[in-house]
């Protein structure tokens, strides 16, 4: 139990997927201009990433490793993620329209969100057990959400300030992200 707690803290803060592992930065900068979209994206990532983490782990252990075709991992994972996203989209549309209305437009973007694929690969690389893989996928996704929402809060304020023209938009966004990352470095060595 203690080990899992350590894993959760390390995935959310110390090895934060956005700020320490550099994954998922395109949606990070793309959806962080408004709090509403940021929360929508965070929700969609938590949902899909957890599911993708579990399914790809099962596929890797019970299929790719058994058949000794691990070199096909990249193809297998991306196809699983792409079809999972499609499937989730159809499912939500039919059965939980309220949730679909909230997350819908973000779902297609997730296929090319490297955070999802990245975490699936990390789970395999670190040789996590099933339980650890589930926990780490969820924790990484939560870390993504935390960083995205925090960062959006700051970015909404930046718009109010006077930013020199060449620095506007993505440029100042990246520099701000740098300082948020600096804050997260403070978590290193926590566990």
């Amino acid at each position: 139990m203690g080990d899992l707690l350590v894993l959760v803290i390390s995935c959310i803060f110390i090895n934060n997927i956005l700020l320490a592992q550099y994954l998922g930065n395109c949606p990070f900068l793309g959806t962080s201009k408004k709090m509403e979209t940021a929360i929508g994206m965070a929700g969609a990532v938590v949902f899909v990433l957890t599911m993708a983490g579990i399914i790809t782990w099962l596929i890797d252990v019970y299929f790719l490793k058994r058949l000794d075709i691990e070199f096909l991992r990249t193809i297998a994972f991306i196809l699983v993620i792409a079809s999972l996203v499609q499937f989730v989209e159809m499912f939500l549309k039919k059965s939980i329209p309220a949730l679909y209305a909230g997350l819908g437009i973000f779902l297609p973007l997730i296929t090319t969100n490297c955070a999802v694929m990245g975490v699936c690969l990390i789970n395999i690389q670190e040789e996590y057990s099933f339980l650890q893989a589930v926990v780490s996928s969820l924790a990484y996704a939560v870390g993504f959400g935390v960083a995205l929402v925090l960062f959006t809060g700051i970015r909404e304020r930046i718009i109010l300030g006077r930013v020199p023209k060449p620095l506007q938009d993505t440029s100042i966004g990246l520099i701000t992200a740098g300082f948020v990352a600096l804050v997260f470095i403070g978590f290193q060595g926590l566990v």
Partner: peptide, 17 residues
Amino acid sequence: EAPGAFVSLGLMLCFMN
């Protein structure tokens, strides 16, 4: 480290602009 990556990319973007 990570912060330097973000800041230097941000500054380079500004330079390109």
